[in-house]
Simulated assay, not measured.
Amino acid sequence: MAFQPTPRQLSLSKAVIFVLALLPFARMVWLTYTGQLVEPLEFITRGTGDWTLYFLCIGLGVTPLRRLMQWNWLIKLRRMLGLFAFFYATLHFTTFLWFDHFFDLAEMWKDVLKRPFITVGFIAFVLLIPLAVTSTNGMVRRLGGKRWQWLHRLIYVIAPLGILHYWWMKAGKNNFAQPILFGAIVALLLLTRLYYAWDKRRQNARIAS
C-alpha cells in the first residue's frame, strides 16, 4: 500500500520544505552582510544560478518519483518547488541587472544580444515567468486543464536552456564537470517523463481499440 500522509503531515512537510528552500538565500544574505566574502557578486551570481538548477531538477523529478513510489501526494509539492526555482532565477537575473548594469536596461540588452550564454539564460528566465504567473488554482481554471498543461510543458525547453547557459558559462573556465552532471540529470528526468507520456498514449490506444 502506497504511503499517504495525513493533511497535517503534508502541511508540516510543506513548511519544512519552505524553510529549507530559503536557507541558501539566508546564507547568501548573511555572508554578504557580515563581509565574509572575497567576491560577493560572483558568489551570489553562482549560488542563485546553482539553486535555480537544483529546484528545476527537483521539480522535474516529482513526476517520475510519484509514479515509481505511487506517492500521488507529491504532486502537491511541485508548485512550491517550481516557484522556488523561479525565486532563485529572479534573484540570479536581478544580480545581473543590478550589480552588472545598475538597472541600465539598454546596456543590459546589448549584453544579452552580445554574449550567447547570457542570451539563452535570459530566454529561459523569460519563459519561466508565465509558468510562475499561472501556477495558482485560479489560473488553472481560467486557462482550462489542457491549455494549462500545454503551457507548462515549456519546462521541457527551459531546463535544457538552463543547462546550456550553465555549460557556456563554465566553458570559459574549462570546468565541465558540473554542467555534464546537471545535463545528465535533466536528460534522464526528461526522458523518463517522455516515456511515461508515451506509455500513457499506448495504454489509451489499447483501450480504445
Rank of each mutant, 00 (worst) to 15 (best):
H101Q: 11
N72P: 06
T94A: 12
G162M: 12
V112W: 08
Y166N: 08
M108H: 04
G49P: 15
L74Y: 07
P130H: 05
W98T: 04
L68C: 08
D199N: 13
P130Q: 02
G47V: 10
T90F: 13
A159F: 02
G121Q: 08
A21K: 08
V133R: 08
K14P: 15
F87P: 00
I158C: 04
A106F: 13
H165N: 14
R79M: 02
K146W: 09
V157N: 06
D104G: 06
I44C: 10
W98I: 00
F93P: 03
F182E: 07
L68K: 09
I17T: 09
A21W: 11
A205Y: 06
L10A: 13
Q4H: 10
L127G: 13
G61Q: 05
T134K: 09
P24D: 12
W198Q: 09
S209I: 06
L151D: 13
A85N: 02
L164G: 03
G49V: 01
V140D: 09
P5D: 10
L68Y: 12
S11Y: 05
R78Y: 05
A106C: 05
A2Y: 09
T136E: 01
T32S: 13
N175I: 01
Q70H: 15
T32E: 14
L113Y: 03
A15S: 14
L164Y: 03
F18I: 00
R79C: 00
F96L: 03
K170H: 14
L22E: 07
L83H: 04
L97A: 11
E39W: 03
I44S: 10
W30R: 08
W109L: 13
L97K: 00
P116L: 00
F103M: 07
D104F: 05
L83M: 09
A177C: 06
G82E: 03
I129F: 11
V19D: 08
T136F: 04
I185W: 03
F103L: 11
Q149M: 11
R141A: 14
G172D: 12
I58V: 15
P116D: 01
T136N: 10
T45D: 09
G121I: 00
K110W: 03
V120G: 00
I207R: 15
S11G: 15
E39R: 09
M1L: 12
R46L: 04
F96M: 01
F103W: 14
I118Y: 06
K146A: 15
F87A: 10
P160K: 05
V186G: 04
Y156T: 06
L113S: 04
Y196H: 04
K110S: 12
L131Y: 07
F86W: 10
W168S: 03
L12E: 07
W148M: 04
A15F: 11
A197S: 12
I118H: 02
M69E: 10
R67D: 14
G144N: 14
G183D: 08
